[in-house]
């Protein structure tokens, strides 16, 4: 099996704050890989470093066999796309869904736009009726579906998901998670997913890395986690917390 994303000794420094302190991971092709941690663990920073949104101080990132430099070329963005956490902030307030979906096609000079837009909207379960709406005419779940459609329209092989459901209601979260699973199965995508919620990561991912303070705590398979076969106290704490409140 080939690897999709390899990260080695990645350091990210903002001003003088070290957000990532030498993190390494390997995501295989077609795999769904999770990053779990609390705020400040550096899990989102890792995603942003891969996309070029966070400044890499040292370390290497290899995506689909290509070592990434300081800048990313257009071809990179056809391979790697991202879905953001906040559906209210990730859609341009003055653009219709149609315009949002056309933009990536225009940037990459893709001709069969009409067909792709209709297909993408169908695929995320929105259909034609949503094509000419503005973001403020959509609910949170619908917005996140549009964001997913926008990420898929360039037909990437890797999707980076930054807490894609944490701003949604539980029932809408279930719908979006199901959609993501379905899309992944159909398009044979590789997922790298960030969440603070262990339950979501074990539901969505085969392997995962627990992070804390910009460092990896441990790497586990989902079944190891479900069977509580973990070696670090911190992971155990997270597991306990995910089971809800227990009165002593």
């Amino acid at each position: 099996m080939t690897t999709s994303i390899t990260v080695e000794g990645l350091e990210v420094v903002f001003d003088r704050f070290r957000a990532l302190k030498g993190v390494s991971l390997e995501v295989r092709e077609g795999e769904s890989y999770g990053l779990v941690g609390e705020s400040g663990s550096g899990k989102s920073t890792l995603l942003r470093a891969i996309t070029g949104l966070a400044p890499v101080a040292s370390g290497t990132i290899i995506v689909n066999g290509k070592t990434l430099g300081k800048t990313r070329d257009k071809a990179f963005y056809r391979d790697v796309q991202m879905v953001f956490q906040d559906p209210y902030g990730s859609l341009h307030p003055r653009q219709t869904v149609d315009r949002l979906l056309q933009e990536p096609l225009a940037i990459h000079g893709i001709a069969d736009g009409e067909k792709r837009i209709e297909r993408a909207l169908d695929e995320v379960g929105l259909g034609k009726g949503f094509r000419f709406r503005y973001a403020h005419q959509l609910s949170g779940g619908q917005r996140q579906r549009v964001a997913i459609a926008r990420a898929l329209i360039l037909e990437p092989s890797i999707l980076l998901l930054d807490e894609p459901t944490s701003a949604l209601d539980a029932s809408v979260q279930a719908e979006v998670l199901n959609l993501l699973e379905e899309v992944r199965r159909r398009r044979k995508l590789t997922f790298l997913m960030v969440s603070h919620d262990l339950a979501i990561i074990t539901h969505m991912c085969e392997r995962l890395m627990v992070m804390q303070n910009g460092q990896a705590v441990e790497t586990l398979t989902a079944s190891q986690l479900i069977g509580h076969r973990v070696s670090e106290d911190y992971t155990r704490n997270l597991l306990r917390a995910s089971e809800g409140f227990v009165r002593v």
């Binding site: 539980a170 029932s171 279930a174 998670l177 919620d197 339950a199 074990t202 597991l239 089971e243």
Partner: peptide, 9 residues
């Protein structure tokens, strides 16, 4: 509401 949330295990 109870059912739609993923749970570990």
């Amino acid at each position: 509401l109870l059912n739609c949330m993923p749970r570990v295990g």
